[in-house]
Amino acid sequence: LRTVEMKKGPTDSLGISIAGGVGSPLGDVPIFIAMMHPTGVAAQTQKLRVGDRIVTICGTSTEGMTHTQAVNLLKNASGSIEMQV
């Protein structure tokens, strides 16, 4: 596991798309980074990659989380965001 910290302002975009989660079209698979926009906050860290499994978001485990719950957690996060992948 590695921990990645990002700074995100209220109008900034992380610039990632995620897939997976409980009840997702892919089945109940762990949440992972499906796409990254090169100008997004996540890409700027140069520490995240497409395919990385997201284990925690700001200390909250993604295990058993639906896709929608994970998306909302990421969208609503601002300031210092910590992810374990």
Rank of each mutant, 00 (worst) to 15 (best):
K75V: 09
V85G: 03
G59D: 05
S61F: 06
V50G: 02
I81Q: 06
R2H: 11
E82L: 09
G79Y: 04
A43H: 10
G9Y: 07
C58G: 13
D52E: 04
S24Q: 02
A77Y: 07
N72D: 14
I57S: 04
M83I: 14
L48H: 06
M35N: 15
L26P: 00
L73V: 10
N72M: 10
G27P: 01
G23P: 03
V22A: 09
A19Q: 13
V55E: 12
T3C: 07
I33E: 04
V41D: 01
M36V: 12
L48M: 08
Q44Y: 05
D52L: 03
M83R: 04
T45F: 02
V85T: 09
G59S: 05
P25H: 10
Q46Y: 00
V55S: 08
T66L: 06
C58I: 04
D52I: 01
A34C: 10
I57C: 08
I33K: 05
N76T: 13
K75M: 12
A43S: 09
G23A: 07
S13N: 15
V50L: 07
F32W: 08
V85E: 00
K47I: 07
V29P: 01
Q84P: 04
K7H: 14
K75W: 07
M35F: 15
G23V: 01
G27L: 00
V55C: 10
G79M: 01
D12I: 00
T45H: 07
T56V: 02
I33S: 04
S61R: 10
S61K: 12
G79E: 10
R2F: 11
E63L: 08
P38N: 06
G51S: 04
R49I: 07
L1R: 01
R49W: 07
T39N: 15
H67V: 13
R53H: 14
C58E: 11
Q69F: 04
L73W: 02
Q46K: 15
V41N: 02
A19M: 11
K47M: 12
L14S: 02
E63R: 11
T62E: 03
T68Y: 11
I33N: 04
G9H: 01
T66H: 10
Q69I: 05
I54K: 02
T68N: 12
V29D: 05
V22Y: 10
G9Q: 08
D52N: 00
I54M: 04
T66K: 06
I16A: 02
G40A: 04
V41W: 05
T39S: 14
V22L: 12
I81D: 02
C58M: 12
G27F: 06
L74A: 04
I81F: 13
F32C: 09
Q84W: 05
P10H: 10
G51P: 00
G27K: 06
T56R: 14
D52P: 00
I31S: 02
L14M: 07
Q46L: 06
V50D: 02
S61Y: 03
D12V: 06
V4D: 10
V85Y: 00
M36E: 05
G9E: 09
M6A: 02
K8H: 03
L48P: 03
I57R: 04
G23Q: 05
R49Q: 14
A34Y: 07
H67T: 14
T68W: 11
Q69G: 08
G21R: 01
P38G: 06
H67Q: 14
T45D: 06
V29L: 09
S13P: 10
V41A: 10
T66R: 07
S13A: 13
S78D: 11
T39R: 13
A70R: 04
A77R: 11
F32Q: 10
K8Q: 07
